[in-house]
Write a protein that binds this DNA or RNA. Structure first.
Length: 492
RNA sequence: AGCGGUAUCGUCUAGUGGUUAGGACGGGAGAUUCUCAUUCUCCAAACAGGGGUUCAAUUCCCCUUACCGCCGCCA
C-alpha cells in the first residue's frame, strides 16, 4: 500500500483564512489517521498578489493551530522545493512533453479575439468553450504570428486526452466525500496551461506539483470540483498516477453569503487577536461537516483524528455560527490550567500596572474573574476595578444604587464596622456573611441589596466577581476609602 | 443560460424501509449563588414540495423548488 501523502496549498494573497484552516485540519486529520504525511506548499505563481507577509502569516497561523507539517518550505523534504515560485524551471519540461505528445498546442489568440468568442457565446446563450482555432496551425502560420511579435500561450487539448484515455466523453471520478462525480468533457474548453509570459497556470502547476510530490489524496474545497476534471486529464496525459480526490462543502456566513470581514473575523490571526483560543477554533471548525461518533463534541485533535473518517464528512455547505464558536471558546477558557491562563491573559492586561500586584493576588484575581469570559480579551474590562487605588468610576446603575437610602445605610455601617476587620479573605467571607445576615434580620434588607451597595461603591458596578475576594485583593485601605467616597452627606 | 453539487429543529449535526426522529449551540422557564456569569433541571423547535417503488418512506428513484459552486493567459 502506498504511503498517504496529503497537502495544504494556500496562496499567499491574504492571511490564513479560517476556511483554509479547516481544509488544512481535515488534511492533517486524514494524514494522522492513516499514518501519512502532511505537506505544506505555497502557491505563489501570481507574483502580483503575493507577499512575504502573508507567507509568514500562513506559517504562524498553522503553527499556532498545531497543524504541523512534515514537509514544507521551511522544513524541506525529499520532494522540494515547496514554494511554487522556486519551481518555475520544472514546469516547462512537462509542457514540452505535452507538446511533443500532441496533448497541448500553442495558441496565438489575442485577448481581443478570445473576448469576441466569449461575447458570441453569451449572445447565443451558450456556454463558452474555446474554439480550438489554433489547434492545427501550420508552422508557417505560427512563424507569421511570431514575426508579428505574438507570444503563444499553451493550451491543453481536452478532446484528445479524453479520447486517448476514456471511452466516453463523460469523465467520472469517485470523490472521497461526495461519491461519484462526472462531467461531459465536451463542455470543457481547451484551457491554458502555460501563459504567454511563460508562467504556469494553477490547474497545470498543481498537477505537476502534486504528481512530483507524490500526493496520494487531494482534499480541498468543493469550489475545485470543476478543476478536478481538467487536472485528471493532465495527470493521465503525462502518465502520472491520478490521486484520489475529496471535496469539502464550503463555509458560509450566517447570511449564507461568502464569509467576509464584515461578518467578523475571517483570518485565523484575527480570531486569535480577538481572544479566541486556537484549540477552540480548531475544535469548532472540525464540527463543520464532521460529527463525533460518541456525540461528545469537545475533543482534542488527536481524539478527532482517531474518530475521523473522510467518507463520513457531510458534503453540504455549513454556516459559520459565531455563537457556537463563542460558547466553545468560553468552554476552552474554563478548561485551561490557571498557570497557562495567567500567561495568556497578560497580553490583554497591558494597560494595567501588574507589577503593583503580588503574584498571589494576580492569581487570585484571575481565578475569580475568568469564568464568565467568552473571549480572552474580555478580561480587560472584567478586572478594571482592581486598579485605580482609591478611585473607581461608577457606572449609571451603580450611581443610582448608591443614592438609595438603603445603600447609604449599608455603606455607613460597613465603613464603621469594617474598620476593625482583619483583612483576609477567609475572615472577610465570614464577616460579610454575618454583615448581610444582620441587615436581613434587623432591617429586612435582602442580602442581594446589602451586597449591591458594597459592590457598587467598591467596583462601580452591580455585577462582577466574588465580593469577598475583591475586597481582599483590593486591600483594606482602598476598599474603605472607596466606600467612604460613596457616603453622601445629604440624601433624603 | 449551461454544467455540477446539496437539502433533518434558527444553526452544526445523529439516525433509520416500521423510532416518542437523538445530541450540541442559540431561545424560553425554573433551581442554586451577594450580583452577573457558571452549574443543574425542564420546555419549545426539523425530515423543502410533488410524484412514484413498497404492506410501510424522513430513509430508495424521478421531477420541482431553493441554495451553493464553476464556467479566467486568478489561485
Amino acid at each position: 500500500m502506498n504511503e498517504v501523502r496529503v497537502r495544504i496549498a494556500p496562496s499567499p494573497s491574504g492571511n490564513l483564512h479560517i476556511g483554509t484552516a479547516r481544509t488544512a485540519l481535515f488534511n492533517y486529520l486524514f494524514a494522522k489517521k492513516n499514518n501519512g504525511k502532511f505537506i505544506l506548499r505555497i502557491e505563489d505563481t501570481d507574483a502580483e498578489r503575493t507577499s512575504q507577509e502573508y507567507v509568514d502569516n500562513i506559517f504562524d497561523s498553522l503553527k499556532a493551530l498545531g497543524l504541523n507539517w512534515d514537509e514544507g518550505p521551511d522544513v524541506g523534504g525529499d520532494y522540494g522545493p515547496y514554494t511554487q515560485s522556486e519551481r518555475f524551471d520544472i514546469y516547462p519540461k512537462y509542457v514540452q512533453k505535452l507538446l511533443d505528445s500532441g496533448f497541448a498546442y500553442e495558441c496565438f489568440c489575442t485577448p481581443e479575439e478570445l473576448e469576441a468568442e466569449k461575447e458570441e457565446a453569451t449572445k447565443n446563450k451558450q456556454a463558452y468553450v474555446y474554439s480550438k482555432k489554433c489547434e492545427n496551425l501550420t508552422e508557417e502560420e505560427k512563424a507569421k504570428f511570431r514575426a508579428e511579435g505574438r507570444k503563444p500561450a499553451i493550451r491543453f487539448n481536452v478532446s484528445k486526452a479524453q479520447k486517448a484515455f476514456h471511452d466516453s466523453s463523460i469523465l467520472e471520478f469517485d470523490d472521497l466525500v461526495k461519491g461519484k462525480l462526472h462531467v461531459d468533457t465536451n463542455l470543457i474548453g481547451d484551457f491554458v496551461i502555460m501563459k504567454s509570459n511563460g508562467a504556469p497556470t494553477y490547474n497545470y502547476a498543481v498537477v505537476i506539483d502534486d504528481a512530483l510530490m507524490k500526493i496520494s489524496h487531494v482534499i480541498r474545497g468543493e469550489d475545485h470540483i470543476s478543476n478536478t476534471y481538467k487536472q485528471i486529464l493532465i495527470f493521465e496525459a503525462l502518465g502520472f498516477e491520478v490521486p484520489k480526490f475529496g471535496h469539502l462543502g464550503m463555509i458560509l456566513a450566517p447570511d449564507r453569503s461568502k464569509l467576509s470581514k464584515r461578518h467578523g473575523a475571517t483570518a485565523v490571526s484575527d480570531f486569535v487577536e480577538q481572544g479566541y483560543l486556537t484549540d477552540a477554533l480548531l475544535n469548532f471548525v472540525a464540527l463543520l461537516g464532521w460529527a463525533p461518533s460518541d456525540g461528545q463534541e469537545i475533543k482534542t485533535v488527536d481524539e478527532i483524528a482517531q474518530d475521523f473518517r473522510i467518507n463520513e464528512i457531510s458534503s453540504s455547505n455549513s454556516i459559520f455560527e459565531y455563537d457556537k464558536l463563542k460558547w466553545m471558546n468560553s468552554h476552552y477558557i474554563k478548561m485551561l490550567p490557571i498557570e497557562e491562563l495567567k500567561e495568556k491573559l497578560k497580553k490583554y492586561l497591558t494597560k494595567y500596572d501588574l507589577s503593583s500586584m503580588t503574584d498571589a493576588k494576580y492569581t487570585r484575581m484571575i481565578e475569580i474573574t475568568y469564568e464568565p469570559l467568552t473571549l480572552l480579551s474580555d478580561i480587560t474590562d472584567a478586572v478594571t476595578y482592581f486598579f485605580g487605588g482609591d478611585d473607581v468610576e461608577l457606572d449609571e446603575k451603580a450611581k443610582e444604587n448608591i443614592e438609595t437610602e438603603l445603600s447609604q445605610d449599608v455603606l455607613r455601617t460597613f465603613v464603621e464596622q469594617a474598620e476593625t476587620w482583619e483583612w483576609t479573605e477567609e475572615n472577610l467571607h465570614e464577616k460579610l456573611e454575618k454583615f448581610r445576615g444582620d441587615f436581613k434580620e434587623q432591617k429586612g434588607y435582602k442580602p442581594k441589596f446589602t451586597m449591591w451597595a458594597i459592590r457598587a461603591a467598591i467596583t462601580g458596578r452591580l455585577c462582577g466577581a466574588d465580593m469577598t475576594a475583591i475586597l481582599a485583593i483590593l486591600g483594606k485601605e482602598h476598599s474603605l476609602n472607596r466606600a467612604k467616597k460613596c457616603i453622601l452627606s445629604n440624601v433624603k
